[in-house]
Design a protein around this nucleic acid. Structure first.
Lengths: 114, 114
DNA sequence: GCGCGTTAGGTAGCTAACCTACATATGGTC
DNA sequence: GACCATATGTAGGTTAGCTACCTAACGCGC
């Protein structure tokens, strides 16, 4: 098993929602946006991205619609109002979570080891 | 399901190892150190902490030894050299991971939505 | 003595979420 | 024709944290 294979656990939804903030995208473009935006660090397999999008759609956080481009079918997703609210909440959660973890890992003023 | 119930996924090991950096602790004390050190945010159930410690011990990252205190049996854990190396690696991984996620969630200079 | 909260350690089984591996199809390039 | 990039998808496996439970000793209040 790769070391940090599933480090994303629980934070992927927020990233997917964030890619849609500036406007609609189709699945493949979302995958590319995450890959390029992360400097290649988050190059997610399709088996991760598509099911996650379906999950978000089922939860009413994004809405998808089929379209056609160059003979290729595409499913374009856009944020719903609920998705926008969720993204805001996820941002706040991430900030708190990440600062807490960083504090524990770095400064770490642990209570004395009795 | 609680919102951020499993936000820790994949990052718990690093936190557990970090609690042992200043010296040995027993399981319950580790649990308390994480709870108090995180301002109550990471108040992990025993069903999370103990199995995780067993996992780390099986992986040779920590080593445990039984002791007695006030008639209560305790299992004291300490970092092994391998555990110390792993902790260093985990710190680096976390730093890279968290800055990447933060960058994507905040500044987000997404490629244009064509 | 008895109940209860705290300290201390533990397990069985569930579930969420991510990954692997595969399948399908079109368009463009060699 | 072969191959790669684009584009979408699913079936099944793994993993790790969580829920819910158990045992046991200690101290405190009644």
């Amino acid at each position: 098993m790769k070391a940090e294979a599933q480090a994303l656990k629980g934070h992927l939804d927020a990233l997917l929602l964030a890619t849609l903030e500036d406007g609609p995208r189709h699945g493949y473009a979302i995958k590319e946006a995450l890959r390029d935006g992360s400097g290649g660090r988050f190059d997610l397999p399709t088996g991760t991205v598509y099911p996650a999008l379906h999950r978000l759609a089922a939860a009413g956080l994004i809405s998808g619609s089929w379209s056609q481009a160059d003979g290729r079918r595409r499913r374009s997703y856009r944020l719903t109002p609920a998705g926008r609210r969720r993204l805001a909440g996820d941002r706040a959660s991430w900030l708190e979570f990440s600062t807490t973890v960083t504090a524990l890992l770095e400064g770490a003023p642990w209570p004395a080891t009795t």
